[in-house]
Nucleic acid binder design. Structure first.
Lengths: 261, 261
DNA sequence: CCTTTAAGTTCCATTAAATGGAACTGAAGT
DNA sequence: ACTTCAGTTCCATTTAATGGAACTTAAAGG
């Protein structure tokens, strides 16, 4: 195996709950000999991928990674555009907004705008959640054909809550609604008491696809405000879709939004 | 040379003006054989460091790098704390705020909060500017001894503008003022018409040091508002310094702020 | 203070991967 | 159909990575 692969394994060890690693962390997490772990961490630091934390033996991601990672949103300029829209809507409504991408059958948050309200939904960038059981996920899955969706779940899936799709048939039925409505909605799925509304848009030239989402406590949002969120997100996404000529974009169908709960 | 070193060279090719690279880019930028460039980019993509842009032969940083890079601010929790303070002050004052770190004799922006005013200072994350010719840089340099500062400039420096320090003696004289005043100030140095005010704080346990900065158009800020900025930044930094027991922190001396222009 | 254990580093022969020149493929323009 | 340029694959050579064990350091226990 290439040292590159080991280096990436090290990077994958970092998470929102593990901000730095030591030689023994690598030995236990990756099962590598400590001689390797020791040299690898030092090499990565010498090359500038990692930094040592003060004088300790702890290693954390470097400023270089921070800067290069920061470029991602510009390299994938769709993300930057979508983030601007979500930021605007989040500011206007006051609830938490974020944008997510799909990797296989999982959804990863990329940027977030915390809401202004005391009771707000907190999202953590970089965490992975199942695509089928979230509004962002279904907004993105709705851009695929039923066959492609089935292919993502060769072994089916286990619903995390009663309001999530319970099986493939229910998922496909809900995706069909998303395709007609132009937005996806969730209620009590990942987090109890939380609703979320998402729309998806994609860039045909790069193949990138993102979901724009607003998430809020179910109890505090009146039907009129819910419609306002749907309208704002839908219009914002439509602007992007027009700009980048996303032919698969599903325009909003407000009459469905009004009848649905 | 290790492939790790080449991979990092590739990452360093990315910048705010180069969001993706091709095989030939690497050949010209790094002078490597194209056989290497081709395999290296593919290997980095296969390992998850890079992504291909759609179906093209262009490579950009990956989502993984975005996520790991994002952790930097939490791993270096001083940055997160400082960012919260600057965000609060920026919101309150309405002008652009950002935080920076020093790498050798250069300053790198890490996070930014754009101001609300129509005429606002725009900062670009990740760009490097000379430490001696910026308020953030001098706030950080003031934490070093004169000998350490001299050691950073073995060959002296070239002032970028008339209001920047013109030579080492002037720089040291201005750092001495920063050490008494507890804040650093710039005017027309990097950008004409722009003033900036910075304070620095450091974490003794990790060795991290950051500068908190507010930057604004010189023409639109009255003396009273300037004092308010200095007070807010100084108090915010003092909170952090107390929390993390930064013994080298320089408390604000408002009487100097009032006499200086 | 000395002992014990854990954590990290260095050494070395073995094994595996990276290198660069050149030949090859494929696509874009003339 | 020809030319040109970008990118990929091949192969023998060179170079680096590997993992076991010995060694050094640092913290915990008596």
């Amino acid at each position: 195996m290439s040292i590159l692969s080991s280096a990436v394994d090290v990077l994958r060890c970092f998470s929102s709950t593990r901000h730095d690693v030591t030689v023994t962390d690598l030995v236990t997490l990756l099962g590598m000999p400590k001689s390797n772990a020791s040299r690898l961490l030092r090499a990565m630091r010498d090359e500038g991928l990692l930094e040592t934390v003060g004088e300790s033996k702890r290693y954390r991601p470097s400023l270089l990674l921070n800067q290069v990672g920061h470029l991602y949103r510009f390299a994938a300029s769709l993300i930057d555009r979508a983030d601007a829209i979500v930021g605007r809507v989040s500011d206007q409504i006051g609830h938490t907004g974020y944008i997510s991408v799909r990797r296989g059958n999982e959804i990863v948050g990329v940027t977030a705008h915390p809401g202004r309200h005391a009771l707000r939904v907190v999202t953590s960038i970089g965490d992975r959640i199942p695509a089928f059981a979230s509004s962002t996920g279904r907004a993105l899955l709705a851009r695929l054909s039923d066959e492609e969706v089935r292919a993502l779940y060769p072994a089916g899936f286990t619903p995390p809550s009663a309001t999530a799709p319970q099986d493939m048939d229910e998922l496909l039925a809900r995706l069909a609604i998303v395709r007609r409505a132009g937005f996806a909605e969730s209620h009590d799925e990942a987090v109890h008491g939380v609703r979320a509304i998402s729309v998806a848009v994609g860039d045909p030239t790069t193949g990138d696809e993102v979901a724009l989402c607003l998430s809020f406590p179910a109890a505090t949002v009146e039907p009129a405000e819910r419609l306002a969120i749907i309208r704002s997100l839908g219009q914002g996404a439509a602007e992007i879709a027009a700009l980048i000529q996303d032919k698969r974009f599903i325009p909003l169908n407000l009459s469905i939004a009004e009848t649905a709960p």
